[in-house]
Design a protein around this nucleic acid. Structure first.
Lengths: 265, 265
DNA sequence: CGTAGAGTTGAGTGTATTCAACTCGGGTGG
DNA sequence: CCACCCGAGTTGAATACACTCAACTCTACG
């Protein structure tokens, strides 16, 4: 059946999973559901009913402000999953919507938890996924807070490139980017108009090219330099086998005083 | 001994913890360490050696850009804890530093994990804590991305007020805010100069007053309105006993199609 | 052929930045 | 005891990046 193939592939970036993990995922009993573009999978203020794995298409976490403006908190690509907070939060504090036609896998949180309790590597992988999500939000915070529009755009593009590569959805120097400029604007805290100007600036500089939903990276090196991009925050290299196999060792963890440096704060 | 009192108090906002949880925390075997202001507890690029609970003083997660500018990702107040990602990440992707003289509790991640595996309520509380952290970062992203400087400042002030109230570190309408304006600027993605002007604007409008490290809320209602602040994202109300006691039930979780609304995306 | 959504462009505006100077208070050393 | 220094805060003036408003193009689609 090979359900959740991309999900599995993404988690494999953290932990070397094997066939038993693979089969456990298949036996999750997830329902596969097609979802049109622009539909909410999770609605702010409502209870979260299940975990959702995005199999195909794009989605995003977002909030709407009183005046109708939108801030996208995270772009979601195939293989990503959402809804785990439903286990501890009574209500969602942000919404999640599809941005393109999508296909999702749906199942109760408990199923995932039960599975994680029996499969150590999957548990580690799921935890890795959560911390990686946080790191990606951090990246957006740095983009919006401290980088110029063109730097932010470059950084986001490179992040998406790496994330899509991981799940086999990007070519050597290009990938499908089926988002409107308005969506990009909401993700970067900019206006649609300014995103437009920024994109064509990047194009004029020969860095990237975006047309007909296809993004092409023309000069990766200069783009990386412009963005100050360092992919290590995505933590795509598998963690060491010791951590993989059981959380054990790390025998040096309890040593040493925590403080040392004292940069000007 | 009553170690980690504020940590316990904060977690109690999520789950009704009892004496056995209390004692389990005491028996963590944490070392208590005083740390001067401006010291790194966790350094970007290095392995994370232990979990750190902030008992007294302020700290922050942050990153430094190439040009020396800083973006603060999260302000940390007494009762907060950091370092859990050390279990799955080989290296920290951001640093954590004290902002004031502090006192911290230090122990290996494994101790916390072992404890969580034996105490269900603590496990739920720790998970709640992680999702709440995420929600707070979301709030900052919305601040920086879509709100004006004065709105962001108002929002941050109200968040800190609620967080400090939770651990008993805020009065009815005031709390100690021992941060420089430069620190606030780095947290809000602004410049020091503009934070200064924003603060005195808020003061001129009779909303808040900040002097000698004491922040006073003069008009909570108008401040809340200005910020568009809704405290529900902090999830301070205890979750239902059913979720508290064992992750079970939620029998309705597997039902229904996920999609429904179709707001203009 | 007409409409709607997405993208593009120009002109004017504004919020926040940059640069720079200056105040204030606390600490230190001559 | 005073001079000096330093960090933090304050203020002004000029600049810049991004926003607003508005018009217009292009393409897909009915």
């Amino acid at each position: 059946m090979q359900q959740a193939a991309l999900f599995f592939r993404r988690l494999s970036a953290a932990v070397r999973l094997d066939e038993s993990d693979r089969e456990a995922l298949d036996r999750l009993g997830a329902r596969q559901v097609p979802v049109p573009a622009g539909n909410d999978l999770i609605v702010e203020g409502e209870p979260i009913r299940q975990v959702v794995i995005l199999e195909r298409g794009w989605a995003c976490r977002y909030v709407l402000l009183e005046d109708g403006r939108r801030q996208i908190l995270q772009l979601l690509v195939p293989g990503d999953h959402v809804g785990e907070s439903g286990a501890v939060f009574a209500h969602a504090d942000h919404s999640i919507a599809t941005l393109t036609p999508a296909r999702v896998l749906v199942f109760p949180v408990e199923a995932l938890r039960a599975l994680a309790s029996r499969h150590v590597r999957l548990r580690v992988a799921l935890e890795w996924s959560k911390f990686r999500d946080r790191s990606m939000i951090h990246a957006r915070l740095i983009d919006i807070g401290r980088r110029s529009a063109s730097q932010s755009m470059a950084h986001l593009i490179l992040e998406l490139y790496h994330r899509l590569r991981l799940v086999g959805a990007a070519g050597e120097n290009c990938f499908a980017l089926p988002l409107t400029q308005e969506t990009l604007a909401d993700a970067l805290g900019l206006t649609m108009v300014h995103v437009n100007r920024t994109l064509r600036q990047l194009r004029a500089d020969g860095l990237v090219d975006l047309k007909n939903g296809l993004l092409t990276i023309r000069d990766r090196e200069r783009l990386t330099e412009l963005a100050g991009f360092d992919p290590s925050y995505l933590h795509h290299a598998p963690v060491s086998p010791s951590a993989t196999s059981g959380l054990g060792d790390e025998s040096d963890a309890a040593t040493g005083a925590p403080q040392r440096t004292d940069r000007a704060v």
